[in-house]
């Protein structure tokens, strides 16, 4: 059973399908179940849904590394780590669609109003934070091409891609203040990630301390 799950999780087509499905979800309330609350302003639903999916995917891809560090022999963690980049890029795609939808939502298709919407976005901390997170994801998506990894060199590339954590922090803030009162889903999207990161850092710190003390023992001995 676990072998099958692992095999499926390793598959690229399965990963692509799983990443595309959330984008199709809004079709359900709009065209199938005819949810009256969604139909009152369908684009608003699409807007919030895309941003939500972007946040979930960003938090998800960042959990893969700590999962592998904490449970290196766990096959599922290994399978997931094959898709780190793909899930990260998918998060960027959803974030970009979220922003595009925001432009359409705010202008209702009137192109002459786009400038005003962008100006507003730079003036409102809530919106600006989202824009900065999107800009980071854009840079990371572009530099995720193999050529860039070679061009930057492994270490620089890794340091640059640590910006993903900054993007996650900004996205959590952006989502947390999007509503009039604190939306609880922010907690279940980002808290597991935070806990895994703390555990990972703890484990790596212990290991490095162990390495130092054992090298010390080796020297005195």
């Amino acid at each position: 059973m676990t072998a099958l799950v692992e095999k499926l999780l390793r598959s690229k087509p399965v990963a692509w399908t799983l990443l595309a499905l959330p984008g199709l979800w809004p079709l359900w309330p709009i065209y199938v179940s005819h949810n009256q609350s969604v139909l009152a302003d369908p684009l608003k639903y699409v807007l919030h849904h895309l941003g939500f999916v972007a946040c979930v995917l960003l938090a998800t891809t960042l959990t893969f590394t700590p999962l592998r560090v904490l449970w290196p022999k766990w096959g599922i963690a290994q399978a997931l780590n094959r898709h780190r980049r793909l899930v990260g890029v998918a998060s960027f795609v959803y974030a970009a669609l979220h922003f595009t939808t925001h432009l359409v939502y705010e202008t209702a298709g009137d192109l002459s109003a786009v400038g005003g919407v962008l100006r507003t976005a730079t003036k409102k901390p809530f919106q600006l934070v989202g824009l900065i997170a999107l800009a980071i994801l854009l840079v990371l998506a572009i530099t995720s091409l193999h050529a860039f990894v070679r061009w930057l060199g492994g270490k620089n590339w890794k340091n640059l891609h640590r910006l993903a954590y900054v993007a996650a922090g900004l996205a959590a803030y952006h989502q947390a203040i999007a509503r009039k009162i604190f939306p609880v889903q922010v907690l279940w999207i980002f808290v597991p990630l935070a806990l895994l990161e703390i555990a990972r850092v703890g484990k790596q710190w212990k290991q490095s301390r162990g390495a130092i003390s054992s090298s010390g023992v080796a020297r005195t001995g």
């Binding site: 359409v104 507003t120 809530f126």
Partner: peptide, 20 residues
């Protein structure tokens, strides 16, 4: 957090773009 200069018109038609 947002501008109050314009408003979405609920149930205001406008197809996929909606109406503002």
């Amino acid at each position: 957090r947002w501008s109050q200069a314009s408003e979405r018109v609920i149930g205001g038609g406008g197809g996929v773009f909606g109406s503002r």
